[in-house]
Amino acid sequence: MDVEDIEIQLFVRAMQLRHGHDFSEYAPASLKRRVQQLVRTHDTGTIIELVNRILHEDDFLPRVIEGLSVPVSEMFRDPAVFRALRDKVLPVLASYPEINIWQAGCAHGQEVYSLAILLEEAGLYERSRIYATDFNDAALAMATEGIYATRDAREWSRNYIEAGGAHSFSDYYSARYDFIKLDQRLRRNVTFFNHNLVTDEVFCEAHLILCRNVLIYFSNALQDRTLGLFRDSLVRGGVLCLGTRENIDFSPAAAGFADIDGALRIYQVGGSGARPLRK
């Protein structure tokens, strides 16, 4: 066995035994790159030295979590998805007196604010509650602030228009030099909190779960477990939206979901037509 692969296993064990964080079911190739990146960021030379710091420095853990999380996101990423949420999913949600939305793996909050804007424009915001979760506390703090680089706003403005936005994207933020700050009224019905998909349980009856580009970091087994968690959280007829390049063909739990728009990875729990399982 490759020495570096042994070191990665020791890293995973140390995170588990010392801090109760389980990365053993993360997709190995991405995990390895992130651990290598941590070695460079903290200039530890070797993974073993990184493990040493994880074991002996109590305040090092948050920085390791930050390094393993990589909360890269965009507002209205894949505009076609947000257009479909607007056209096909919000009308379903509109039939409920109260709407619970779980946004799992919310990174720096870009999708939370995107969703909030969508709900505002559909007149559904007042009866909605968004639970925005991530296992990276630093990312959650940034998500709460809603401050982003101005240079990103230009692309997001294009995304917003492509997603079928009814106004101008700039109506939703104030700009100051290099930064924009999203209108904080957009988060009056948003609750941000730490939730780890590997270890934590269902906490609400959701009508919509948005979890994009998170399960791609998970092994087949962990992906399946998490889809089971989502299925248990969703009401009958509830909607699940994953990232546009995610593949649930290998998950037995996916049999509980039917396509609303398969190409955009939008599914409905308990809909007619169970998914075929491919092996």
């Binding site: 997709a27 790159r33 890269v72 791609i216 970091y217 390049r245």
Partner: peptide, 12 residues
């Protein structure tokens, strides 16, 4: 992946 499967990520 080392078992000859693909994976994707959206890292930086």
């Amino acid at each position: 992946e080392s078992d000859a499967h693909f994976s994707l990520n959206v890292d930086a």
